[in-house]
Design a protein around this nucleic acid. Structure first.
Lengths: 403, 403
DNA sequence: TCCCGTTAGTTTGCTCCTAAATAAAGGTGT
DNA sequence: ACACCTTTATTTAGGAGCAAACTAACGGGA
């Protein structure tokens, strides 16, 4: 039980203002007040402080909106950024991004999570990225395909990597000496969408990924929803059938066991669409070439996804559903099955629920992880814990030194 | 987008303290601070104010816990309470409860929601309950089997009552002249559980009802989760099968269409367990008497419920699941199918998730509705809106007059 | 032209709550 | 007995943000 009061925030408002200017570009005081939902008086005070500290400057006047024209405020240009990494079963993708989310560099590194010293190896890979970073580094975000106890602690259970109770956060913090935030990979995408995607215009939404697994990030009132133990949104293991195919989790009939990549490949093999060494790429090519059996596999998968997502929508009641992931490039084949099933299984009042398909490439995962760090100034829920505090502190002091 | 700041709170803390003392009984200052997550200093100040106003008194010392013994604080006894009502398709159940949740009276009234003046009739029924109330009435809570736009506004869509866009809140407020909070009936149970049930010890949980329909209330971090449009937790319409029985909502294969009361009765009829005019009570008697076909119907229903709840658990990640409702008296027949299916469809790390079955009688629904009002002093999320403010104001001033 | 409505930003005086230091009142080990 | 710990409660000083009232700067209509 905890009747959450506002709780001790350090100087969250200044950080949020800096973060906003960093991600949205020049903004007027009035706009800041509206966007962050704080009073104009507070904005005046905070910006006065930030200007006196040399972090922020007044820019041009914006054209009048019918009244006094706004004076835009902008961040004093500095080299401030974050590093994001996505860990997979065979490699680590890393991006270096600026405050506004622009990717400055992206690299990919082979990685073996089964090795006994896997975490140290990960520390080395990230260490060189940290060394390569020019300017002030706010922190490192790490996306993991598994469940994470909390972003700030960073202890991980990831069956697909073979990790149980892996001390990702502690080890990396010791190795890197900068704030490290660890989160489930799908959740990082949800956070990224809030900063740069559809989430800017919606406060309660689902981010659904299709690919090897099926995942779901849940954002409620602008904040990531993690559940009691950080395991919310595990929709890959929602049961679709009482006795279906065996899933990697040990249960039967999980969504993932029906429409995950492995399941699609298995079905395609059974139906002779691809050969014994065929892959999901082969299945997609067959569908692209017009093979009806291949298309039927995707249609069925879309149908199943639609029905499962309808269930999730009934549970969560979001404003919008965002679908992306490495499997998205075959979406045109999913869609015929999906839309009818999704809408058909929704109650009438929610049948018009919008969903959007977002473009995708490998490094979206890593960018998502980086946005964990970039979003931490907005963190009003305390999800980022002490590491978030550290990021805020670095955002502040980064420029005091050089002023 | 709204990066929710604490936002304008009236004097929320004094109200929360009063509410806490009302629902939990005598409590020490230190305990109040811990429970409400506010600083001891604030508690000292607030209690000083409340004592000077004659609302609160110091009571005995509690036995020492190894340090200075706590001095308990208690509410000055007054006649303060709330009225709760549950609206069904053929009657309205009403209870009158005290601050501590004790039921002072309970009545049941015939009601026809299809009548053109149904809302006025409801106003009259509740009006006499309000008139009968002795002492200060904090407000009226109304539980409705349908979706409610917001507690404070109280506009209702309730298919089972035949109501669309029904102005329940506005009409009742005009008729009664006291604060009126309207909420989905299952959600009221979730709120009640937070005050008086399992929810005192858990901050994130599901309250699942079985009966005519299947419902789910979601409490996250101690606050009711309503979703973007107040429709969260509609698990009755989670699709179980792609092409199953037709549901009242127009879709096929909904959970409710499989295991709602009507579905159980239909299945029992099909299998010859009950006659053409048989009811769910008849089915239960048959199961009680040992009829294997009747027991199989319940077992299958339990199996389906278990698999659907496993899906919801994977989505929400609660600490505990609470099951109750008018169908609960047959639970012993659900259980064999339920537990195996529920646990069997959970991922290993969550397989030990606790669930509890709570006892049930008709007036639990109405008590739940009343606790909407009693819980509003705790409302830090603003879910109760202006009506919650009014309740708080009444809680304060109720005693100023008599002091 | 001059006044009004509108939007932007600032100043002032608060309220609420907190952290930190301190006091109060009991235990416990030697 | 004494020192020391723990838990409870209060005091003090002050931070953070707000509402309300103000100034500032523009457009437009009569």
């Amino acid at each position: 039980m905890s009747n959450d009061r506002p709780a001790a925030r350090g100087d969250l408002v200044p950080s949020a203002v800096l973060g906003l200017l960093g991600t949205r570009g020049p903004t007027s005081r009035a706009d800041i007040a509206r966007t962050l939902d704080i009073s104009p008086a507070t904005v005046t005070q905070v910006t006065k402080l930030l200007i006196s500290r040399g972090l922020v400057t007044e820019l041009d006047h914006a054209p009048s909106q019918g009244g006094r024209p706004a004076r835009l405020l902008g961040l004093v240009e500095r080299q401030v950024g974050a590093i994001g990494a996505k860990v997979t079963a065979n490699h680590v993708a890393i991006v270096d991004v600026g405050l506004d989310g622009t990717v400055r560099s992206s690299t990919s590194h082979p990685f073996n999570p089964d090795a006994p010293d896997a975490l140290d190896a990960l520390g080395h890979i990230l260490g060189s990225a940290v060394d390569d970073h020019a300017g002030t580094l706010l922190g490192v975000g790490v996306g993991i395909p598994g469940s994470v106890d909390s972003q700030a602690s960073g202890v991980v259970d990831a069956p697909t990597l073979g990790w149980t109770d892996a001390q990702v956060g502690p080890v990396l913090r010791r190795a890197l000496g900068v704030p490290v935030l660890v989160e489930n990979d799908v959740n990082t995408l949800a956070v990224a969408d809030r900063l740069y995607g559809e989430g800017r215009d919606h406060s309660t939404y689902l981010v659904v990924t299709i690919g090897r697994g099926i995942g779901c990030g849940i954002v409620v009132d602008g904040a990531l929803y993690r559940g009691a133990a950080g395991g919310a949104g595990e929709i890959g293991h929602v049961p679709l059938t009482l006795d279906g195919p065996l899933c990697g989790c040990g249960s039967r009939g999980c969504l993932e066991a029906h429409i995950g990549e492995d399941a699609l490949v298995r079905t395609a093999l059974e139906r002779g669409v691809i050969g014994p060494r065929g892959t999901v790429a082969g299945l997609r090519q067959a569908a692209e070439a017009g093979d009806p059996a291949a298309r039927e596999i995707y249609r069925e998968a879309g149908e199943r996804l639609g029905s499962a997502l309808a269930g999730v929508v009934h549970t969560i009641d979001p404003e919008i559903v965002i679908i992306l992931g490495e499997g998205i490039d075959a979406w045109q084949h999913w869609e015929p099955g999906f839309e009818a099933s999704f809408r058909g299984h929704l109650v009438p009042s929610r049948r018009g629920l919008p969903f959007v398909i977002e473009a995708w490439d490998e490094f979206n995962w890593a960018l998502g992880a980086a946005s964990l760090v970039l979003a931490s100034p907005f963190d009003s829920t305390g999800a980022t814990g002490d590491q978030g505090e550290l990021v805020r502190a670095r955002l502040h002091t980064s420029v005091e030194a050089t002023s």
